[in-house]
Design a protein around this nucleic acid. Sequence first.
DNA 1: ACCTGAACACCGTTCAAGT
DNA 2: ACCTGAACACCGTTCAAGT
Lengths: 238, 238
Amino acid sequence: MTPRTDADELTERPRIPLSRRRVLRAAVELADRDGLASLTMRRLAQEVGAEAMSLYHHVANKEAVFDGVVEVILEEIMAAVDEVQAPSPEEDWQAALRARILAAREVFLRHRWAPRVLETRTTTSPAVIAYYDHVVAILRAGGFSFDLAHRALHVLGSRALGFTQELFRPDGARTANAEAAAMMEQMADRFPNIVGMLADAVHDDPDGTLGFCDDQFEFEFALDLILEGLERRRAAGS
Amino acid sequence: MTPRTDADELTERPRIPLSRRRVLRAAVELADRDGLASLTMRRLAQEVGAEAMSLYHHVANKEAVFDGVVEVILEEIMAAVDEVQAPSPEEDWQAALRARILAAREVFLRHRWAPRVLETRTTTSPAVIAYYDHVVAILRAGGFSFDLAHRALHVLGSRALGFTQELFRPDGARTANAEAAAMMEQMADRFPNIVGMLADAVHDDPDGTLGFCDDQFEFEFALDLILEGLERRRAAGS
DNA sequence: ACCTGAACACCGTTCAAGT
DNA sequence: ACCTGAACACCGTTCAAGT
């Protein structure tokens, strides 16, 4: 290459030495900006101004990058949850847990690719365990036995962290209403119940500004149903 | 290559012509046997005794293979669900839906990689819509408004199909009990609540033969809690 | 119509060599 | 100690050529 000149020194941003921390932060930023598929070792190296091979001095391999990225997200969630204003768990465990879960959810709304990564982790990270430890603490303060708290974690699953994998996802860009209506008419005989349901939903929302499903509303509906079911079992002393 | 001989004709299995159907079935078998990571175009081609490029005459690309694989699994689920012995939905919608969901779950237990594929599909396949249409039919027969049926689908999410992504998964091979105990002692100060919970669970199951979590039990506990919550809202007429 | 070989533009990762 | 270039063994996919 050509020798470095003073001009280069000025235009180049100063070389911050590589570190695990810096690599992981860059990975999150890259996924935020260009999507999870863009998170390759080569692109990540480019992002931090190094060669792909340099990354291996700070992370063992690509799996370790995914593990680390989950760590970073979990820290963001922990910080968000700590700042929540809510009744103490002793006073009202449902309100306390609900508020924290909704705060965690906001983090995932900022990193929509993150659930997909979290669900591929086979070894549960200490950061995830720490989060669930916090959830169990709230349940215990609310009067749960360890046994019921354990079952509660399974019932909540990823919802405790603030996300659920939506099975009915909009096809890429949200399907236009006109297009949706045409599709519904075409499907009416094959899927009479779904079509009836969709027709009803559109009727309830004549402007159609909200689209078919209000994610936040559905998430809270499910969360409340689950928290109520758990409270009933707790009160029954199971 | 060498010219074909009569011996070749006998040892070679007769060449069944390639077809979309045959490709997709082979894809499911390959994932069952060697895991989802092994499902590459090149290995799939090998599986059906052809070159990778030949596949492209029957499927558009790899995404289409995943779409097709979901189709095959959904057909298997539909067949399993159709054979279920259960009360009619008019009589007892909870029992009717519960039995069908548990039947669907058995299909996913045979294809443990399938949830991961299903959750990456961005365009909801007709097969999935058909399944959910069936679920809505049961809810309607049980007295649900379209609006509540819609919310029920969101609450159930993938559980309606018989699976949930387990966030606490055993690390590869199920962690040995001795190892688990050692880890717990080490974690006691950092995660007091989780450790307490685990200690309690082990106490309930002194032999430890079941391991920490009984997946089937947890799945049914969550399912029942959710179905009860939905029934309460239906009875309240929301 | 259906299949194929060679080639292209990517991957993650190893290794030996640089400073 | 930290970084790198070349190389290896893979990917999915295009294209022109075969039958």
